[in-house]
């Protein structure tokens, strides 16, 4: 039986790895200039051609960002789901992404108005502050209500409030800022450069490694606080770690790509169904790969579906993510009778 489980895990990872490779190459090929696989490989191998810049300076950083941020987002979702023992918790529905968006917008307008262009590290910090503000409210509410649907509704409301404030400040911002901000606040992977990629890689992979090291207490936490505590988990410390890691991960995403919806719920659910387990040791790497695949796919559509017009990434993730979430909630309620 145990072997059967291992086979299942191996198959799951293989599927995700194959999808990831296919999408990486496809993303390099497709776009306003369609390139053949061979041409792409040649450019990557170092041959110079007229399209080198497209691959190296535009498509490659963008797809790496999409993959890493997508992975980060779904891992962040999985952390929140573990924390709240609620499979429909995620950074977007709980208003955490919107909180990050609000503070980033405020900070950007403030500094851009004074002619200062902020680096990506500063934006991550701003996004983190915003995440923690929303998170603070959510934690306060979760102390009062235990029902998961109420918690999610509260999160959506917090998200609306933050978005409203963001819209308000954007409306009164200088014209020059708006174009930039507008694109970003809708969610997009466009305009990534190598310096962005480097910064996000450091943040994302450090957090991912730390998250992976938490997989043991996370497993113990799945039966509830009482049992985690009885198994020797320092519950208070563990909860703080979960909150910090999930907030940093989603803040990083928001700082670079704006709010992206539903990835944080849909991907962990799909990954858990694929592996037929919720074991963090298996699911955390699975979520990262799955999130990468999901966002690469969605970004591909965002870029190419109505080219040359680019869709916001959030619209595409919503189209694929929201039905999965609905299906999942229906499935759960029927199963529970």
């Amino acid at each position: 039986m145990r072997q059967k489980r291992s086979v299942r895990y191996a198959i799951g990872y293989s599927i995700l790895a194959i999808l990831l490779c296919v999408l990486l190459i496809w993303n390099l090929n497709a776009g306003s200039v369609n390139l053949s696989v061979r041409e792409v490989l040649e450019i990557l191998a170092g041959h110079n051609s007229e399209n080198t810049a497209i691959i190296w300076e535009i498509r490659l950083p963008r797809l790496l960002a999409a993959a890493m941020l997508g992975g980060a987002l779904s891992v962040s979702g999985f952390l929140l789901q573990t924390f709240f023992a609620n499979p429909i918790a995620g950074p977007f529905v709980l208003g955490i992404s919107s909180g990050a968006k609000m503070v980033v917008a405020l900070v950007m307008i403030f500094f851009l108005g004074r002619g200062i262009v902020l680096g990506s590290a500063a934006l991550i910090v701003a996004a983190f502050v915003g995440s923690m503000i929303s998170m603070g409210f959510i934690l306060m509410i979760s102390g009062q209500v235990k029902k998961m649907s109420l918690l999610v509704i509260s999160g959506i409301m917090i998200g609306y409030i933050c978005s409203a404030i963001t819209d308000l400040v954007v409306t009164f911002a200088d014209d020059s800022n708006i174009v930039n901000l507008h694109n970003w606040s809708m969610g997009s992977f466009s305009g990534m450069n190598w310096s962005n990629v480097r910064t996000m890689a450091i943040v994302v992979f450090v957090c991912l490694a730390l998250t992976f090291l938490l997989s043991k207490p996370m497993g113990a936490y799945q039966l509830g606080e009482v049992y985690a505590q009885n198994l020797g988990v320092n519950v208070r410390l563990f909860r703080v770690q979960l909150i910090l890691l999930s907030s940093i991960l989603s803040a990083c995403v928001t700082a670079f790509a704006g709010p992206i919806s539903f990835v944080g719920i849909a991907v962990p659910h799909l990954v858990k169904s694929l592996f037929r387990t919720a074991k963090p040791l298996i699911v955390i790497p699975g979520c990262f790969l799955g999130g990468a695949v999901f966002c690469l796919f969605c970004d591909l559509l965002a870029r190419t579906a109505f080219a040359p017009t680019e869709l916001s990434i959030s619209s595409v993730t919503a189209i694929f993510g929201a039905p999965i979430v609905i299906w999942m909630m229906l499935h759960r309620s029927t199963r529970k009778g």
Binding site: A220, L223, E225, V226, Y227, L231, A278
Partner: peptide, 23 residues
């Protein structure tokens, strides 16, 4: 301990629940 009530874990086999005791 064995208390009344627990969080319903998703995708958890009974064997895995027992295994958590080895933590």
């Amino acid at each position: 301990v064995m208390m009344t009530g627990w969080t319903d874990p998703e995708w958890m086999l009974c064997e895995e629940v027992v295994e958590s005791g080895r933590f």
